[in-house]
Every structure is written in C-alpha cells, then in structure tokens.
Design a protein around this nucleic acid. Structure first.
Length: 543
RNA sequence: UGUCCUAUGGUGUAAUGGUAGCACAUCAGAUUUUGGUUCUGCUUGUCUAGGUUCGAAUCCUGGUAGGACAACCA
C-alpha cells in the first residue's frame, strides 16, 4: 500500500501544478481544452496532447472541451473538423462541450473596440513588408508605425469600416499598441486583426476581418473558463501576450502551461509536411498506413489502447525529446499479444509434398486461437499431403543454430506433425520449386510419444485450390510492398470481429510473422491485410 | 551579439536538501509446440566550474550545449 502511494506521488509537472492549485483553493475543479486548427488530420503528436488534456481532466474529475481554433478560413475545412472528431472518439475520449473560436468572433470584435477605446489598439495602414521591417529583429528594436498615434475616433471609424468590407485584403490591420522596442518580439505591437475576404467554413461570408491566434486563443480560453490551457513549448514566448490581453480586457484569467511536443525518430511530425505527402501523392491519403496520423495508425492496425499506453509511458516534461519508435511498437505488441487471435499465413510460399502421406487424404487438426487467452478456444485447420511453408524456413544445408527445415533436419509443423526434408526440386534458374518430406504419423498434433524433441517449429498453410486468393499488403517504412500469401481457410470465414476490437477492425497475429489487420479494401473473395508490425525476432539478430 | 525555455544511462522519465529508481532498447541465461510470450540477471547516467550546506541531481553564481521567438499561420 505504501509502495503504491509512493508510485502515485511521482507526478509530472502539470499534475503538480494542478494539485497545488486544488490544494490552495485557486480552483475547485479543473477545465482543459483540446484546441486543434481544422487544417489537417490529427497525428500521433496530437494524441499526446489529447491524452494530456483529457487524461488530466479525467484524473482530477474535471472537464475537457473540444475547441476548433478556426481563425484562418483560407486553410481550414469541414473535412478536417469531421476527421478530428472521429479520431478523438476512436482514441476513446469524449468532450464536455464542443466549441469553435468562430463562435466568439462577435465577442472578440467588441473586445477589440474596447481596446481601441482604451488607447491600446490602432489601425495600421502599412504594407506587410513595412510592418515586417518596422518590427526589427530579435537583437535590434523595432520602429513605431507612422499610424501609431491615430485618435481613438479615427481608429474606431477605420476598424468599423474594415469590418464593413470597405478595404481590400492587406490594406489595413488592427494592432495592439504595446512596445516596438520590447525584447520579446511578441510585444512589438502584435497584429490582432487582418482583412481576409474569404469564405469561412462556419461563418460563411459574414466576416471579412479575422482575429489572429494571439488575439483569439486566450480570450476563448477565458470565455470557457479553462483553468489549464495546455500547449506546446513554442507558445511559451506567447504567454506574456496571452496574459496581457486578458489583463487589459479584465476578463476571467485562464493560464497557459507548456510541455515539450512529441518527437519520434524516423517519423515526420509536421502537419505541413504531412499535408505535402498527401497533396503530392507520395501516399494514398491521410489514412495511408504509412502515415503517422491517427487514422493512418488505425488503418495500419494500431489499437487505441496501445497509443494511449504509449502516451502514458513517454511522460510529460519541458525538455526536448526524441522517443524511440521501439517504445511505440512495444506498447502495440504488449496489447496485441494479449488480444489478437493467432492464425497461420505464409507470406512467401514454397511448396511442400509429404511423400509418405496418403494421397487424397485430408484431416482436421486443432489449433489454439490465443495462448494468452484460453477463452478464445481452438479452431480446426485442414492438413493434407501438399502444403506451403515460408521460403525462409528452409535451407538445403542448415548452418549452425538454424533450427528450421533443412535436408535431414526434423522440424515440427505447428499443430501438425514432425517432418523431415528429403530432397528438393528446382527450376532452370536453380530456384527451389518443391520440397519433398517424410512425416512421422505418431507425432500428430505436434508431440512425439517417444519424447524426442525438435529444435524448430514452423508455420504452414494448407494447399489451396483457389490459387492465390489471399493478398497481403505489406508495409515497409519507405515503400509499399504487396505480396500474395497462402493462409489457413479460417481467415476467410471470419464474419464477426473479435469483441476485443470495438472499432470493427479484425486483428490477428500471423504466427511467427507479425500482427496484421484486415484492410478496408478487403472483400470475401480477396482478403487484404496490412502488416501492423512484425514480431520481435531474435533470430534476425543471430543471422 | 536580445528575451525566454531546457540540461539525469543509448532513448525517455522519476527522485521536490538525505541510499540516483522505473520503462524501452542492448547483452547474457531459463522456460517455450510461435527464434513470440513469460521469467531472471548484467552493463550504462546527474553538462561544466565554483559557492551555500553536516549533506546538492535538487538551492545560488558563472560558463557550455540544445531549443523557441523576427507569418497579415496556429
């Protein structure tokens, strides 16, 4: 008990902040939010943020809102708002309230007029380049705009006319009046509104001025009484401005906290780059199984549980990090090992003939569905004189420590018999086309009554009259590899997915080969599986 | 030659002035009708130089290294 308490005491820095605020009465419950911009699909990095925001609220009995940060109509689309909601639900989270920053446009506008009246905002007529130049650099101060000292009346009039659509895009902006020499660039009269005659996915053509992130985010948090506005490190420098708007407006004070974003080695985690992969057709879509998007991982066969377990393991801190991809795979295998039923499929088949097995005979053998879950029971697999094994499971001459099939080396065909290879047939190029074996009828099921052992057990698939009716889409990190495989018939007859997978995606372990899931392109006549990941392979290291 | 953030094994993450722990990875062994799973064990770490203290990963100062900020993006 004490040990458990000690373990629970190991809090991340956000949990510490929350607990101390709860303890000193700063707030009695917490409110978080997940604030995606609907300009792309969610990726594994967003999963971390989702787990933090929803997870923290759940842990401390608070609530989490979903808020679309839709302040830039030219990049946003309803396709993205739909996919984002689907992905959050698939991960197993649900929001207390759903909002859009665009719901607050009117309020934001009124607050902008208030700031103008307080002499804290002005309309600037400078061009984009002039503004950029006037801002200075990180090491040199900026210069005041010649329009900086317009009267409150003139600013109000101009701003209203901006809203009324009297000016073209880029003609004017509304700026906060702070300090053009401030060492934090964010304070050098940041732009609050720009003119954009663009159709918004929710507000249509109602507006032609749109607020900038810095002018919208904190106030949106404030409106929703977000106690902990959690974002990534690059917004750290925005926090003083976030606080400034809230203070000048005198509104409910939300507070922002920053954590280090997720990086995974070998993994592209930039929305912009992922968009490019899709737009330029390097991949088949946002849900291409090679994409690190949530829908990509879903199609690839990852489970929500494994992604959440991963997010749990990586922790939350403020230092930059690069997580080993192997940690993601570990979390995946950990879950799938427990719940995925086993099947046998031969991805790179070579023919085997058991010469002393009666011609024309077939028999049914019993195979365990999941050794990790007895309740999953068993299934029957047809066995006959001719069958298929993996090409890499045979060598004419076995090197040291090679325990698979070789001439004269007895191996077990899983759940079937001990067999010994005797000879091979080859084609003109010298490729093996058929392996001739003998079997020991006394070893039915895979055990020898005389107690003798074999070093290796290999999987196999029965000979199939319908040539190549099963396909496998086999995923490599950098390429799409499609192979035609042989598999046991039970795979084709599966009609209802395991209760373990409420998302309706069938997932299996193909013994000794890896975890695979049915692809949405799969049909009863033409099964398509995606390889989710391989099994750990200690033989590959020995080789 | 600015402001801010960060620095603990290979990778992450704890230790909140008192024995540097956990996970992944790696390596070795045991078990195994999956070279899977499971189990056991090993190796590897406080950026640096001072200071405070009985005692510093932790507090202070300087250095070094990495990162963020100069969109009318979020």
């Amino acid at each position: 008990m004490e040990e458990n308490n000690a373990a629970e005491k190991q809090l991340n820095f956000l949990e510490e902040i929350i607990e101390s605020g709860l303890k000193d009465g700063t707030y009695t419950s917490i409110q978080t939010r997940f604030p995606p911009e609907p300009n792309g699909y969610l990726h594994i990095g967003h999963a971390k943020s989702i787990c933090i925001n929803f997870g923290l609220a759940k842990k401390y009995g608070g609530k989490t809102n979903l808020r679309f940060d839709d302040t830039n109509p030219v990049k946003e689309d309803t396709e993205y708002v739909d996919s984002i909601q689907e992905d959050i639900h698939w991960l197993g989270f649900d929001w207390a309230e759903k909002h859009y920053a665009s719901d607050y446009f009117e309020q934001l506008y009124e607050w902008a007029e208030l700031l103008i009246q307080k002499g804290l905002a002005y309309v600037d007529d400078q061009t984009l380049d002039q503004i950029r130049e006037g801002r200075g650099t990180v090491t040199t101060p900026g210069k005041n705009s010649p329009y900086r000292d317009r009267s409150v009346e003139e600013n109000l009039d101009l701003f209203r006319r901006m809203r009324a659509g009297e000016f073209p895009d880029g003609a004017k902006v509304l700026r906060a009046k702070i300090d053009m020499a401030h060492p934090n660039m964010m304070f050098r009269d940041p732009i609050m509104y720009r003119i954009l005659h663009a159709h918004h996915h929710r507000t249509g053509d109602k507006w032609c001025i749109y607020p900038m992130y810095d002018y919208a985010h904190g106030q949106s948090d404030s409106i929703e009484h977000i106690t902990h506005s959690i974002c990534t490190l690059e917004f750290d420098i925005h926090r003083p401005l976030y606080d400034w708007f809230i203070e000048q407006l005198g509104i409910w004070p939300s507070h922002q906290y920053e954590f280090a974003r997720l990086n995974i080695n070998y993994t592209v985690m930039s929305k912009r780059k992922l968009l490019q992969l899709v737009k330029e057709n390097y991949v088949t879509g946002w849900d291409d199984p090679r994409m690190p998007t949530i829908c990509g991982f879903r199609r690839r066969g990852y489970t929500p549980e494994s992604i959440k377990a991963f997010c749990d393991r990586i922790g939350v801190a403020k230092r930059d990090n690069i997580i080993d991809y192997s940690l993601l795979e570990f979390s995946l295998r950990e879950h799938l090992n427990k719940v995925a039923q086993r099947r046998m499929a031969v991805l790179d088949p070579v023919k085997v003939v058991i010469d002393n097995y009666p011609e024309g005979q077939t028999e049914m053998l019993t195979a365990v569905n999941n050794p990790e879950c007895e309740a999953d029971g068993t299934r029957q697999v047809p066995f006959g004189r001719e069958l298929w094994i993996e090409r890499e499971d045979f060598m004419e001459v076995a090197p040291k420590k090679y325990f698979r099939m070789a001439i004269g080396q007895e191996v077990r065909l899983r759940y079937a018999y001990f067999v010994t290879a005797q000879s091979v047939e080859k084609d003109a190029e010298g490729n093996i086309t058929c392996i001739h074996c003998t079997y020991d009828p006394a070893t039915r099921g895979g055990d020898a009554p005389d107690g003798r052992k074999v070093k290796g057990t290999i999987h196999w698939a029965p000979d199939d009259v319908e040539e190549g009716h099963t396909f496998l889409e086999n995923l490599n990190p950098n390429s799409l590899k499609v192979v035609t495989a042989k598999c046991e018939p039970s795979l084709g007859t599966q009609t209802s997915p395991s209760a373990q997978f409420p998302d309706g995606i069938e997932r299996y372990q193909f013994e000794r080969m890896g975890y695979f899931c049915s692809d949405r392109d799969s049909t009863p006549d033409h099964l398509v599986f995606n390889r989710t990941c391989t099994l750990k392979d200690s033989w590959a290291k020995i080789k």
